Simulated assay, not measured.
Amino acid sequence: MSTISRPALVPEVVFPDSDGRPMADNTLQYKWIVIIKENLEILYQDRDDVFIAGDLLWYPDADNPKRCMAPDVLVAIGRPKGYRGSYRQWEEGGVAPQVVFEIHSPSNDPEEVMRKLGFYSRHGVEEYYYYDPETGKLTGFIRDERGLEDGIDMHGFTSPRLQIRFEPGDGPDAMEIFGPDGQRFLTTVELAQQRDEANRRAEAAEQKAEAERQKAEAERRKAEAAEQKAEAERRRAEAERQKAERLAAKLRELGIEPE
């Protein structure tokens, strides 16, 4: 009896959408992740070819699910917006995120920091920014022929890719980031306050315009009333003149010359 050989089943390679690690270790770290991610979303809201994500696993290789990193914020220019469970580079036209941000947390020991730098340098990141909000130190790494290199004075430095400007400030939590239009990156509360203030100004402008419209309408009606009064006076005067002419004509019929 012959036996039928069956092809061996190749186990499917699984790329998890989570590494089981928390997005942030504290509120200060989370604050800066949200500020950078959400303000970049606003900055690129009109471009469908810029994908921005926070704490999303990035897999650069289709054959190695253990080789991955979850930047606090990543920017992939040339990739469409939309939902992703993870960023699988081979499904993204081979495009690596060009810009990544990491916000320091207590769990980021020097070994972890160097591991992330090595990963980003090997896998094509063009700009890597590491910010420690507790000390206020901002480090920028820009790609050259050797890979990602630091040594940049970040005070007033402008991202080549994003055209955003960094002002680290002095002391903890003092960094400011400015968009290409010079507008500072704002917190969610500041954005809400800005929106509310814009709504208040728009409402005040609308009320002022309405008051001006009503004033102009009142002036128009006043002018129209004055014109009607003048027309009535003209008609009355014309009626008096015609009456006087008729009276003068009648007197002449009677042989009396009117004065």
Rank of each mutant, 00 (worst) to 15 (best):
V113M: 14
Y128R: 05
R47N: 10
I36H: 03
G118R: 15
E203V: 05
R184I: 13
A216T: 07
D49L: 01
R143A: 13
C68D: 04
R6V: 15
P11K: 14
K81Y: 05
G182K: 01
H155I: 11
R201L: 15
V73D: 04
S121A: 06
R200D: 12
G124P: 02
W32F: 13
P97F: 06
M1G: 15
E176P: 01
L186H: 04
E231S: 01
A192I: 07
I77A: 07
I142G: 09
Y87R: 02
G156I: 05
I35C: 10
L28W: 06
D72P: 02
L117H: 14
Q193T: 12
K215D: 14
N64I: 01
V14G: 01
D170C: 04
E197M: 06
F185C: 10
D25H: 06
L57V: 11
D144K: 04
A226N: 12
R161L: 15
M23Y: 00
V75D: 10
A70I: 02
A218M: 10
P60T: 10
A96H: 12
R21G: 00
I142F: 15
A70D: 07
P133D: 11
D25T: 02
I52D: 07
R115V: 13
D63S: 08
Y130N: 07
L148M: 11
A96E: 13
R236E: 06
K243M: 08
I177G: 07
V10P: 00
S121R: 01
R221P: 00
F119P: 04
K243W: 05
A96F: 13
Q228H: 00
R213S: 10
E212W: 00
T135N: 10
Y87I: 08
K215Y: 12
M1N: 09
D61F: 11
R235N: 01
P133A: 10
S18A: 09
A53W: 03
Y131L: 04
D132T: 01
I256A: 02
L74A: 14
D61H: 12
K137Q: 11
Q214Y: 00
T27P: 00
Q45A: 15
T3R: 02
A198R: 14
E190G: 06
A230G: 00
D63Q: 08
D109L: 10
W32R: 07
P65T: 10
H123C: 11
L9C: 01
E41H: 13
P133V: 09
R6S: 13
A53N: 02
I164S: 07
Q194R: 14
G151P: 03
E203W: 05
P258M: 05
R234T: 01
K243C: 04
A202S: 09
G124R: 06
G54S: 15
E127S: 09
M114L: 15
G94S: 06
R221T: 08
I77V: 13
T139N: 10
P258H: 03
R79W: 08
G136H: 06
N26K: 02
D17I: 06
V50D: 05
G169N: 09
H155K: 12
Y128S: 07
G94L: 08
R246W: 03
N108S: 02
Y83R: 12
E227A: 14
K37G: 14
D17R: 02
E145R: 09
A239P: 01
M114N: 13
K229C: 01
R146F: 03
Y87N: 04
